[in-house]
Amino acid sequence: MEQTQYELNKGLAQMLKGGVIMDVTTPEQARIAQEAGACAVMALERIPADIRAAGGISRMSDPKMIKGIQEAVSIPVMAKCRIGHFVEAQVLEAIEIDYIDESEVLTPADDIYHIDKTKFKVPFVCGSRDLGEALRRIAEGASMIRTKGEPGTGDVVQAVRHIRKINSQIRKVTTLSEDELFEEAKTLQVPYDLLLYVHKNGKLPVVNFAAGGVATPADAALMMQLGAEGVFVGSGIFKSGDPAKRAAAIVQAVTNYTDAKLIAELSEDLGEAMVGINENEIKLIMEERGQ
């Protein structure tokens, strides 16, 4: 990928900031998401909660289904490919997807290598649990990062853990002297130049969203106050009682994430939230996929 394209791809992520990206499985859901104020949608066959329930192997969605969603909305459309499955990524690029999520939600296709994302023109977002994972994905060509969280659980604890960890590691890196960065780069297993960027700027070189387990307006605002630049909501919307209302409430909560009075109003009468499942009750820990 040439430098100009990478700048444009990081730029699209910048345009998504302060917004909510919603998982959708049908054109109808995509329209509901757009109408509720989603800044992009993630097209996938099954939302993470159902992937978790179904078990088995989870793969890239049917391109026809993705195209149906591309036709239904005017906002950017993202789709997931399996970790390391560069042919699924080639297919998604061929249908002109706006962003590819190389995602641990799907079953990994490669247990060692991630996709060499620098070979693509289309942008990639990847999950990370800490600064090391984030910078390794960026070195591979990711132009946007999100926390992994634990998808499909409705439990925000892992996303909180990941955003806190990454931000605390960034703060630490800014306090190191430049010669200490060489050792830190080895410890984190990341390229020195990316670590130097973090040291100088106190932030990642790309946009960082929260993802995994966000189910309520307060969850979304929590992630924003902890430093996320926007929020992915997966199962939390279409597994709830009133998806359209909950989606719109989460969008407004992300914009005004420090206004507790407004978030209180937004949280009223949203119907049932997704029931969710606790991390101690699940066998499959998706966050451990692809490090």
Partner: peptide, 8 residues
């Protein structure tokens, strides 16, 4: 068009 049509 879509993101692949973005340019400088």
């Amino acid at each position: 068009g879509r993101q692949l049509g973005s340019f400088k």
